[in-house]
């Protein structure tokens, strides 16, 4: 359990929460706000310490530690959780969500909650919040394309993991798995013809220096998931559990909205610095959405998709 030694003036409960981003990013600020709110509402009896830059270690290791009941938390993503409960990877299927409204509609979704319950019961990992979204991922490339057919043979960098490769392949492109750190060099030297990223990440990586076209494919509305140890979570007093979850959602929605508002600025920055936009309206969107359906078959999550669509009334 996560009980520290209850000394005079020391908090009774502590969570070490880690993530891979820098201290400057919107999410880190959200986690700090979360920590402050929890501390205030528990009169300093429950403290969250936030560790940026992967200081706590490697994601896979931290998930194992959670399963052993350690008081650590982590910002992970649905593709990773798909390693445990397969259905989660549907959230990275192509064109599942058509924007912020769909994302908001999914918060508190009974279907997703049933997967979370499975994750908790079978693997000891507790989901704290889904409220942290990063906006659409789009393709940035050195070729123009307006339909899956035009993307054929175009090598697009994505994360080297099966779920990502399946989704990018379903758009018609040739998905190429490269580490995140090699993305810029990969495009510059022609190892790949482009990459797919949220605009905020593209700006942070200066992708506008190496790629000519911003093809607004909107193929994934990127969600992230905050997780912690179920064993540790259940050892908290009920009141503290509620505070922890409420404040996580609150800080997350604020960050998501801030990023949503910033997306326009980031895109404008990319365009001002030499990229040419091929907007969503100009694409053969129907063909992309249709083609993207292959990803669900490839990942074996067709039923999960139907359940989500049913909830969203699609």
């Amino acid at each position: 359990g996560g009980k520290g030694e209850p000394k005079e003036g020391e908090p009774s409960y502590m969570l070490r929460f880690g993530h891979v981003q820098t201290e400057k990013e919107e999410y880190h600020k959200a986690y700090i706000r979360w920590a402050e709110a929890v501390k205030e509402r528990t009169n300093g009896d429950f403290v969250i310490e936030v560790y940026p830059n992967a200081q706590l270690g490697v994601e896979e290791d931290i998930l194992e530690q959670m399963r052993k009941g350690s008081n650590v938390g982590w910002q992970t993503d649905p593709a990773r959780l798909g390693d445990y409960v397969e259905e989660f990877s549907v959230l990275y299927g192509a064109y599942l969500l058509s924007g912020y409204d769909d994302f908001e509609g999914l918060l508190g979704s009974p279907t997703i909650n049933s997967w979370s319950k499975k994750l908790e019961d079978e693997f000891g990992i507790k989901v704290l919040s889904y409220a942290y979204a990063q906006g659409f991922r789009n393709v940035m490339a050195n070729v123009q394309a307006r339909s899956p057919r035009e993307l054929r043979g175009v090598r697009i960098r994505t994360a080297p993991a099966p779920a990502w490769l399946a989704t990018v392949n379903s758009l018609g492109a040739t998905a190429t798995g490269l580490p995140y750190g090699e993305l810029y060099n990969g495009i510059q030297t022609g190892v790949v013809d482009g990459a797919e990223l949220p605009v905020s990440a593209a700006r942070a990586l200066s992708v506008e220096e190496v790629a000519d076209y911003l093809i607004e494919t909107r193929h994934i509305y990127q969600m992230n998931v905050l997780v912690a140890s179920a064993e540790w979570f259940n050892s908290l007093p009920k009141e503290y559990q509620d505070i922890l979850l409420e404040e996580a959602d609150k800080a997350g929605l604020e960050a998501t909205q801030a990023l949503e508002a910033k997306a326009g600025t980031d895109m404008q920055y990319l365009l001002d610095n030499g990229m040419t936009l091929i907007p969503w309206e100009e694409l053969d969107s129907e063909a992309f959405i249709k083609s993207g359906q292959q990803s669900y078959e490839e990942l074996g999550v067709v039923e999960a998709k139907e359940a989500i669509y049913k909830e969203l009334g699609k």
């Binding site: 896979e60 399963r67 052993k68 390693d83 445990y84 080297p160 993991a161 099966p162």
Partner: peptide, 9 residues
């Protein structure tokens, strides 16, 4: 405990 953890790729 890592038995289920797939080796990526």
């Amino acid at each position: 405990s890592t038995k289920h953890r797939s080796f990526q790729g």
